[in-house]
Write a protein that binds this DNA or RNA. Structure first.
Lengths: 128, 128
DNA sequence: CTAGATGCAAATCGTTTGCCAGTCG
DNA sequence: CGACTGGCAAACGATTTGCATCTAG
């Protein structure tokens, strides 16, 4: 069922390059725009199909921001969270992680993961 | 404008009743189905429009689950977060909140809010 | 009466899929 | 050569909006 990329194609290389060159979560539309530079004529459907394959291969991971469509980034970075600027909408990586989040779960529940998103104003928007 | 409920209509009463009678986060489609019982012919567009107004009035709040469409619940509860069971998919409220989350933002950034979701197995699924 | 609210349908938006042509190995 | 891939456009599901009608105050 072709759920693996068995061939090394131009478009896959261009899509991976977009993620490597931009170390923050990207929307499919961003990936399409960035990868199109290296691979003119690239179709948006190919971006979606490739992202899905890369997720299955654990090369990418999904970054879900409440109320927004999913973004994706390379999974080769240490554990971190995200900050979204309410002014410009951009998303930044936030290193580190609050300790013992699992302690907040109800008794008897097993926690194996979490997502944390901070909101506010980025340094740039605060200056402007 | 019209970001306030200036008129008490049947359909708005029916929509609020659906939330009061159902202490879970509801999808717009759920609200439509539930409120239609008390208000036949209710349009889905009205549900969306009313939810938006109630959010602006801080009567409702959004519950975002990664990869799923937004749900809504009455905002009459204290600050809390959510736990989603990876086995049964249900969402539970988690009281409390890790302290000083703002400290994790990059220097120069201003934090004014956050969302936290824990994942794992609920007590029931762990037993089963 | 009159501004605001509703219903319906059409319009968007983001994402997925069908189909046929192109390409890698 | 032959299956895996990619592009295009139609299909899709969720949400929003235009517009004529209706209703609360």
């Amino acid at each position: 069922m072709a759920l693996q990329l068995e061939r090394a194609t131009q478009q896959r290389a261009a899509i991976l390059a977009a993620f490597r060159e931009h170390p923050h979560p990207l929307l499919p539309a961003d990936v399409h725009a960035l990868a199109s530079v290296h691979c003119p004529g690239l179709g948006i459907a190919t971006v979606y199909r490739t992202i899905k394959v890369l997720l299955a291969e654990a090369v990418l991971e999904t970054v879900n921001l409440p109320g927004e469509s999913a973004r994706y980034e390379l999974k080769d970075r240490p554990h971190h969270h995200h900050f979204q600027c309410r002014a410009c909408g951009r998303v930044f990586d936030v290193p580190g992680c609050p300790p013992s989040l699992a302690a907040y779960a109800p008794p008897g529940f097993a926690v194996d993961g979490h997502e944390l998103t901070l909101y506010g104003r980025c340094a740039e928007c605060l200056r402007g």
